[in-house]
Design a protein around this nucleic acid. Sequence first.
DNA 1: TCAGTAACGATCAAAAACAATCATATTGCG
DNA 2: CGCAATATGATTGTTTTTGATCGTTACTGA
Lengths: 269, 269
Amino acid sequence: MHEKERHRIILSAVQEKPVATVVELVELTDSSEATIRRDIAALHVQKKLRRVRGGAEALHPPQFVGLAGRPFSVNQSINSRQKQAIAKEAVALCEDGDPIIINGGTTTFQMVHFLANRRLQVFTNSFPIAEHLLKNSKNTIMLSGGTIYREQNIILSPFDNDVTRNFYARRMFMGAQGLSPLGLMEADPLLIQAEQKLIDQADELIVLVDSSKFSKRSSLILCGLKRITTVITDSGIEDRHAAMLEAAGVNLIVAGVQEMNSNRSVTLE
Amino acid sequence: MHEKERHRIILSAVQEKPVATVVELVELTDSSEATIRRDIAALHVQKKLRRVRGGAEALHPPQFVGLAGRPFSVNQSINSRQKQAIAKEAVALCEDGDPIIINGGTTTFQMVHFLANRRLQVFTNSFPIAEHLLKNSKNTIMLSGGTIYREQNIILSPFDNDVTRNFYARRMFMGAQGLSPLGLMEADPLLIQAEQKLIDQADELIVLVDSSKFSKRSSLILCGLKRITTVITDSGIEDRHAAMLEAAGVNLIVAGVQEMNSNRSVTLE
DNA sequence: TCAGTAACGATCAAAAACAATCATATTGCG
DNA sequence: CGCAATATGATTGTTTTTGATCGTTACTGA
């Protein structure tokens, strides 16, 4: 076996498992330990992997420290003041007993805090949302089936999911990457897929976006403005954007960040 | 077993319950107490867990009341020694890349620790299993859709679930309430429902039961003995029960609870 | 309080992993 | 073809890790 082939095998093996031992690699490549060690050493200086005693490990060990991968947990803290205010308004629309759909996302995730004392029927495709509500509330939780995508933290199935098709809600709540005259825009194709499966399963579509989203654009259009029932945003929204929504017949709720009585402690309760 | 692998298993175990004892970890990893102590000490200085007398605990331990209602978490500790040994044999049957189904239950839950270093395609209807694997392993996780039942910790849908129907596995692993000549018995009608949806989605049916289950009966029969490919149990199984399985053409694996020095403490710890 | 037991730390020998070296095989090139 | 350059595999001695033992310390229950 040639050197390059071994290197490919080694790199592949290191991706598959947290740590590939020298002995394993010997069996995989039918070469000697000495050779494998030399290979690992070479790949180590090439910064292709990290050399550890006993074998080698991937350079960027997908640190599944938390369920929320980096992107998710980082997003969590961005604009969390506004997001919480927006989420609060969203939950305020609901009454106990209502069936609702919460699409995965960092803004919609903030709804969980205000749902802690409620008793709704919540359908979601977000693993973190389901987990949190399950642990910290008495709501009925329904989950869509499929593969859990770690990066986006959503559950998605390539097949038409009858659980999804049979759950019909009064309202569906979702975030978005951007909101323009063209409609509701999203960046991640995976999220688009997930959202398109849900979007027709509710009477009303409630979109939760902070005001910065009105100036952002994205490549993928999910649906037109007319499909949206209500937009909840923060007071940073510009008049022209509000006018745009009004023209499309979309209700607008501006979450009052100011009315929260002196809570500099934004932390959740 | 490699150092990194042990560390993963230890961290996995610490997540599951408030405190993982050294003895438990020894059995989980097949290494000595000295090694486990050294590992715990190392992980302690790495701030990955907290070292306590007798073992280790998670850094951020209390997830409130906990997702698992009482019944689940209580069951968790009963006969956990045997359950872990049984679960270990179960995982040993699998090769990386295999598609498998893990039905929810306390015995099958123990498989998660041994899956920490593996890379399988795991389909489950158990929220805790999905959660744990998601957080502590690189396995691909697929979840069935539906309502999350808190008592039983399973996800169940009244509708035929296409995710389920389209996932076909090599092996399905499940626990049971009892095992008699009549077949596999279950007590909870809800569990029966969940299991019947999955049981035909795999080539082989592997049943994980501790030996006490052979003398227990239950009201509901899930399937006959002949449907079972393999039974994994502990060394407490009686000869007549082994004969019963043999007569039905069922493979039997006895998980070696190799006599630990003077284990008069059969009680749970 | 006072055993009795469990957990611990230190120590040392065995095992595993390693680095260095040399002999052999393979490859490339004149 | 022959020779040199390089890669590979085997051998040996060294370092690291592991497991077992033993004396000490911390808990437990009467």
